[in-house]
Computed example of a mutant assay.
Amino acid sequence: MDQFARQGRLEWWANDSICLEMYDIDITVAVDAVGQWRAAGRHANALDTTQREGWDFLMEMDPHFSIAFPGEDRGGIMVRAVEAEDGTLTLTETPDWDGSANVTFDLT
């Protein structure tokens, strides 16, 4: 199994032109013999109150991010993020994700 650890960046894109937020993460990626991709990590820096509110909002709306590594202008690997209570992130590659999500807002 090939494995590497480095810093990356999770990017939440509203559409092809607008990136609403970016989060630096420390990530460990493992790729097995058949190419199955798994990753785990943490936010590189603790989120302040405003960042935490934004993160929670985006995660509730749609937990899909693109991930970029140093030297990349824009992330190319789509992942679904799941955050454990201890702050650990599990990232699962979602190559078939089409970028659409159904979001309903209750304005009452």
Rank of each mutant, 00 (worst) to 15 (best):
26 D>A: 11
85 E>M: 12
59 M>T: 07
99 G>P: 06
13 W>E: 02
52 R>L: 13
33 A>D: 14
80 R>Q: 12
69 F>G: 00
94 T>A: 08
65 F>L: 01
96 D>I: 05
108 T>W: 11
93 E>W: 01
68 A>L: 04
103 V>D: 00
48 D>K: 08
53 E>G: 11
89 L>M: 07
63 P>H: 05
30 A>D: 06
1 M>K: 09
25 I>C: 01
107 L>S: 09
92 T>F: 07
16 D>L: 13
103 V>I: 15
55 W>N: 04
76 G>I: 03
1 M>P: 06
62 D>S: 15
34 V>D: 13
98 D>Y: 10
99 G>I: 04
70 P>N: 09
13 W>K: 01
70 P>K: 03
17 S>T: 08
53 E>K: 15
44 A>V: 10
106 D>C: 08
71 G>P: 01
74 R>T: 08
38 R>F: 06
93 E>I: 01
67 I>Q: 01
67 I>T: 03
68 A>W: 00
25 I>F: 07
60 E>I: 07
71 G>R: 08
42 R>E: 07
49 T>I: 12
39 A>P: 01
68 A>G: 03
32 D>E: 14
17 S>V: 12
87 G>P: 03
21 E>M: 14
46 A>T: 14
29 V>I: 10
36 Q>I: 10
17 S>D: 15
104 T>P: 00
104 T>N: 08
81 A>G: 10
9 R>F: 00
88 T>V: 11
80 R>D: 02
25 I>S: 02
104 T>F: 15
7 Q>S: 11
8 G>Y: 03
93 E>G: 02
7 Q>D: 11
100 S>R: 14
59 M>R: 07
2 D>P: 07
5 A>T: 10
41 G>T: 04
22 M>V: 12
33 A>E: 13
100 S>L: 15
24 D>C: 07
75 G>Q: 00
30 A>Q: 04
30 A>M: 05
98 D>R: 09
50 T>G: 13
84 A>P: 03
18 I>S: 13
36 Q>R: 11
24 D>K: 06
34 V>T: 15
105 F>H: 10
83 E>L: 01
92 T>S: 07
71 G>M: 07
39 A>Y: 02
2 D>L: 13
42 R>F: 11
3 Q>H: 08
106 D>N: 12
51 Q>W: 09
44 A>Q: 09
74 R>M: 06
40 A>H: 12
92 T>L: 03
61 M>A: 14
45 N>R: 15
29 V>F: 04
34 V>E: 15
93 E>L: 05
65 F>N: 00
54 G>A: 12
103 V>Y: 12
69 F>N: 01
47 L>C: 06
19 C>M: 03
11 E>Q: 15
12 W>G: 00
53 E>D: 14
60 E>G: 14
37 W>F: 06
65 F>W: 02
96 D>V: 14
35 G>H: 01
63 P>Y: 02
83 E>K: 04
47 L>G: 06
12 W>I: 05
19 C>A: 05
18 I>P: 00
59 M>I: 08
79 V>T: 03
48 D>I: 02
73 D>P: 06
68 A>E: 00
64 H>S: 03
